[in-house]
Design a protein around this nucleic acid. Structure first.
Length: 562
RNA sequence: GGCCCCAUAGUCUAGCGGUCAGGACGUUGCCCUCUCAAGGCAGUAACACGGGUUCAAAUCCCGUUGGGGCUACCA
């Protein structure tokens, strides 16, 4: 990766950091768009800047309010906060103003070409295997020709479109320093005079976008790599207006398993899918942040991270200049820095979005595309479930998932491998949570969720288990009548004993099982297996001892009674 | 076709001229265990190819191949 530019000064010393996320409401927010929003958000947080949300809705035909609302609600679902909000459809005056400036400077001209004419010349270029570039015909029209053509267009209810006169800028090449790609250059003559304002009086993306960026004081444009080829046009516009252009960072794109770009119609790209599967918003963001990107934590930094896992110890050998004997280290601090700087850690799992922002470095974004991996997402989600407290998890479920109204239970049938009779097949998440809270109380629910979150990888799995095991009144089949009867009898005894030291806890249940095994010459594994079968209807799952205790004697006994 | 971007294991990546090519996901085996996970341990697998430059190249340069993006009066 060659980030051969030094933007450090720009990034760190400029306290006017302003970035923007500018989706067009022509579809729902997809996973790639979310990643762009995230990178902007992290960059803003890291540099104490502002994040602006701008709805790029200049294309009236394709833009829909429905999509705009959906994008905004998704951004909120992910807790990405923005400081300012704009819609391009409400900023026509601004574009008009800048267009006028351009006109005064003589950088624009009217184009009377019709769509058909343009199409013909384009087809011609393709047939000749030459690049299509607008021929600039209308630049050389005289006044009477213009008036004739103007009338013709007016008859069709159109006005001339406005193009930027590239040659007038007198440049051969446009080049820019991209934070992630380094120097990128384009030939101006290959760009062609592009349209700023259409014949039906709309402003084009390439114009409106950069005008807004200038007008809103955007310092850094962080967007997808697919915009690289728009960049020279936008820079040219900046030059024509005599403004300096923002700093660009074109981040790599996300691809599906097939190597194809994650597109809006792709179900893999659809955020609904991940919500429905029960991935936490923070985990999705965490995953998105580490793919096609690396977080480096210097060893001497404070480790906020939770102690146990993620011991990514990686030692880079210090590069010591042996040739230079005089390369003295003058004080202890320098020595410490030299030694420590070479010890870095790749950090993957974060405990908060703010922590992610703390270590975020746009310069480390990779310049090549990445294939989306649901396996890794699941892994990240699992880690998040593990380190989130049960209370927090429950509140996230209530806040984020209950509203979605997903019905998981009806999925069971199609998932086949579980064949149990669930009480309420149409229950949705809020039904399950409400029901569980009623049944076990707040504290009881916390205990159960605390248990489940360490056993399962997604919210969906947790909800399913909560419903199928902890809420089901179903009496599941036993496979051994005798064992079942013994279990009933012995469990009943624990309870009836009534003394303080024989509560229905893990030890008591375990002892009871051991006793049954000893006294009745039963295989201990069979007893466990039978208990599991009776209580959950399944042959595998988390510790049945814990499940039994969490269920409580009053729910276990009826299930054991034949 | 043209322009631009990119190339380390199945996937995400570290690497900035001298490394046993490091880590993570996945996968395989073992341990743990009431089963499934989790966890612990171990294994698996990569510098696209060809030329240079250099004492020395994954790393720098050129070419080839491959992948991707853009190529609109869409954004």
């Amino acid at each position: 990766m060659h980030n051969n530019i030094d933007n450090d000064n720009n990034i760190n010393n400029n306290d006017n950091i302003r970035v923007r996320f500018a989706p067009s409401p022509t579809g729902h927010l997809h996973i790639g768009g979310l990643r762009t929003a995230l990178f902007n958000c992290l960059f803003a947080k890291k540099n104490n800047g502002k994040l602006i949300l701008r709805i790029d809705d200049t294309d009236i035909a394709r833009s829909k309010k429905e999509y705009e609302d959906s994008i905004i609600s998704d951004i909120k679902w992910f807790d990405i906060k923005y400081d300012e909000f704009y819609k391009q459809s409400e900023r026509k005056d601004v574009y008009e103003k800048y267009l006028k400036t351009l006109e005064e400077k003589g950088y624009i001209y009217e184009c009377f070409c019709t769509e058909e004419e343009l199409l013909i010349s384009k087809e011609l270029s393709i047939n000749l295997k030459k690049p299509y570039i607008y021929n600039g015909r209308c630049l050389h029209l005289n006044n009477s020709e213009k008036e004739n053509l103007r009338k013709k267009l007016a008859d069709a209810g159109l006005s001339p479109s406005i193009r930027l006169n590239m040659l007038k800028l007198g440049l051969e090449q446009v080049e820019f320093e991209d934070i992630v790609h380094g120097r990128v250059a384009f030939h101006v003559k290959l760009l062609g005079d592009f349209v700023l304002k259409t014949s039906d009086n709309r402003f084009t993306y390439n114009f409106a976008s950069i005008i807004d960026d200038i007008d809103l004081g955007i310092s850094h444009i962080i967007r997808g790599e697919d915009h690289i080829s728009n960049t020279p046009r936008q820079i040219l516009l900046c030059k024509a207006l005599g403004k300096s252009s923002p700093i660009f960072a074109h981040i790599s794109l996300l691809y599906g398993k097939d190597g194809k770009l994650m597109s809006k119609r792709d179900f893999n790209a659809n955020l609904e899918y991940y919500k429905k599967e029960g991935y936490l918003p923070q985990a999705i963001l965490n995953y998105l942040a580490i793919t096609g990107n690396t977080f480096v934590v210097h060893n001497y930094s404070n480790e906020i991270h939770n102690n146990n896992n993620t011991d990514f110890n990686r030692t880079i050998h210090p590069i010591i200049d042996n040739n230079n004997e005089n390369n003295e280290i003058h004080n202890d601090e320098n020595l410490l820095n030299l030694l420590n700087k070479d010890k870095v850690k790749d950090k993957e799992i974060f405990s908060s979005i703010n922590e992610m922002a703390q270590y975020f470095d746009i310069k480390r974004a990779k310049n090549s595309g990445a294939i989306f991996s649901e396996d890794k997402l699941k892994f990240v989600n699992e880690k998040w479930l593990q380190h989130l407290s049960a209370e927090t998890l429950i509140s996230i479920i209530k806040e984020k998932f209950m509203l979605t109204g997903y019905i998981y239970l009806s999925d069971i049938d199609s998932n086949n491998n579980i064949d149990i009779d669930v009480q309420n097949k149409n229950a949705n998440i809020s039904d399950v949570i409400d029901c569980a809270e009623k049944e076990y109380g707040k504290e009881g629910l916390i205990l159960i969720v605390d248990f489940l979150k360490n056993e399962y990888k997604t919210v969906k799995e947790i909800i399913l288990e909560l419903n199928n095991v902890f809420l089901s009144k179903e009496k599941y089949k036993y496979f051994d009548k005798e064992i079942t009867e013994l279990l009933f009898k012995n469990f009943e005894e624990i309870i009836d004993n009534g003394s303080a030291d024989s509560e229905f806890d893990e030890i008591a249940v375990k002892n009871a099982i051991q006793k049954i095994s000893k006294e009745n010459k039963k295989n201990i594994k069979d007893i466990y297996k039978n208990l599991r079968m009776v209580l959950t209807g399944k042959t595998n799952g988390p510790s049945i001892l814990k499940i039994a205790v969490l269920l409580g004697k009053e729910r276990v006994l009826p299930k054991l009674k034949i």
